[in-house]
């Protein structure tokens, strides 16, 4: 475990805490894409199939349970909580998620390290995570005034991606058993690039002390 990996996991965790805080205390999910949240739940379910069979470390298992539990409960909040669901911006969150799920699944069937059930689903989860943020970014662009919690949520998610890339570079040079193949690198870099535009406007609004507003 290096500092980049730990910091990446912590910003990922922070992004989820910010989101849960918004739903639990303010009872609002305004500006949050249910489509993206459902995709993340699917990402974790298909990636952590090894949770009961392969033990890496206590840290690893606890984090997996955290990501599974929180992603599923966020979807539950947005769909069924009688107050929270009223603030869901259904009319603007129109991105069709199977447009992302289907190509990712086909790609995972074709390009994978090993053609086994678990390996294909693990690869699928990597491809899907890379693009899962798209419905959220589309919704942000359609939202007039983005509140601070939503902005921070996406910021922490983007920071997590950036830190994971630093982690891979670090591990590549320091860990002789660690040689990632193209799959993780490519999908990881694609995912991080998707945030570049958001980061630009996030930092600009922060420096100007203005509300975050993405151009159409």
């Amino acid at each position: 475990m290096n500092i980049f990996r730990l910091a990446g996991d912590m910003t990922h965790l922070m992004s989820i805490v910010v989101l849960l805080l918004k739903m639990h205390t303010i009872k609002s999910c305004a500006g949050i894409s249910l489509k993206t949240q459902e995709l993340y739940a699917l990402v974790f379910i298909t990636r952590y199939l090894d949770i009961f069979t392969d033990f890496v470390s206590l840290y690893n298992t606890v984090m997996k349970i955290f990501f599974l539990g929180t992603s599923i409960s966020i979807v539950w909040y947005m769909r069924y909580h009688k107050v929270v669901k009223q603030s869901y911006d259904k009319d603007h969150d129109t991105f069709r998620h199977y447009f992302l799920i289907l190509p990712c699944f086909l790609l995972a069937l074709i390009i994978n390290d090993e053609f086994t059930f678990r390996e294909v689903l693990w690869t699928f989860s990597l491809y899907l995570e890379a693009v899962a943020i798209i419905p959220q970014l589309v919704l942000l662009q359609r939202t007039k005034n983005i509140d601070n919690l939503t902005g921070n949520y996406v910021f922490f998610l983007g920071a997590y991606r950036g830190l994971y890339i630093l982690n891979w570079i670090y591990r590549y040079f320091t860990d002789s058993h660690y040689r990632r193949k193209g799959i993780t690198w490519t999908s990881g870099i694609v995912q991080t690039l998707l945030y570049a535009d958001f980061f630009y406007y996030y930092i600009r609004s922060w420096r100007r002390n203005e509300r975050l507003n993405l151009p159409a």
């Binding site: 090894d50 890496v56 058993h177 040689r179 990632r180 993780t184």
Partner: peptide
């Protein structure tokens, strides 16, 4: 779990 392909990451 082999770390070769990053299965030890989250």
């Amino acid at each position: 779990v082999s770390p070769d392909n990053g299965h030890d990451e989250l």
